[in-house]
Design a protein around this nucleic acid. Structure first.
Lengths: 109, 109
DNA sequence: TTCATTCATCGTAATTTACCGATTGGATTG
DNA sequence: CAATCCAATCGGTAAATTACGATGAATGAA
């Protein structure tokens, strides 16, 4: 996970529509949802949501897979893990005294 | 940390200039840096960086503190922790089987 | 083959963001 | 008080993002 990839992931997450879609996809792991179901849930037009989806797929946040004539979308939990590791480690460059309390908090969820 | 706050933090992080400034501030914890030093490090104009800084401060990513006639900026590690907890917990809404491997990875940094 | 379904892409308009120089306001120094 | 320093804000431009309807390509069904 380099800076560029992390920025793409952060940008992909930093929009209400996309964040909500991602959360919806997480709730539907590991089965995923079709693009049409996501469009319906978003309340936006099909074309508008398609561009949001393209942003997420390009960033690696979502993985698309063809199934029949539908496109099944799945949350990429590896990318979520990646961006969190980036924030904790790469961002806090070696300052363990800074991110260790952060991890402690996370493990106590 | 609600969705709105998390979105603001993600947006604040999702820009090369702002992410780099944040990383720089982390490296300078707990002393912080003056706005002028951050401007110089960014290579941008003073006014441009000032708007970036305002985004970060508004999101709570950075905390400003007046010292003399300078403005000292400090990374807000609580907000970083907050957004990570949001991604791990709120985003993975109760699906412990999803975020536990995620946390396991984080604790092995 | 013909029709319906599914979704990406195109073209476009409106809004937001990013960037700059210039100005202003507040604080310190002389 | 006057001069200086620091940083926010203003005004303006260029680029990116967001949104939509319409079109088109691919797949499956009749």
């Amino acid at each position: 996970m380099n800076t560029e990839e992390a920025l793409a992931l952060l940008s992909a997450l930093a929009h209400p529509t996309r964040l909500e879609a991602f959360r919806l996809l997480i709730r539907h792991e590991p089965g995923g949802l079709s693009t049409g179901e996501l469009v319906e849930a978003s309340g936006l037009s099909q074309s508008t949501f398609s561009t949001h989806l393209a942003v997420m797929v390009k960033a690696g946040l979502v993985i698309a897979e063809k199934r029949g004539r539908q496109q099944i979308q799945r949350a990429n939990l590896d990318s979520l893990r990646g961006v969190m590791v980036f924030l904790a480690k790469d961002c806090c460059q070696g300052r363990t005294e800074l991110y260790e309390p952060l991890l402690a908090e996370l493990t106590c969820i």
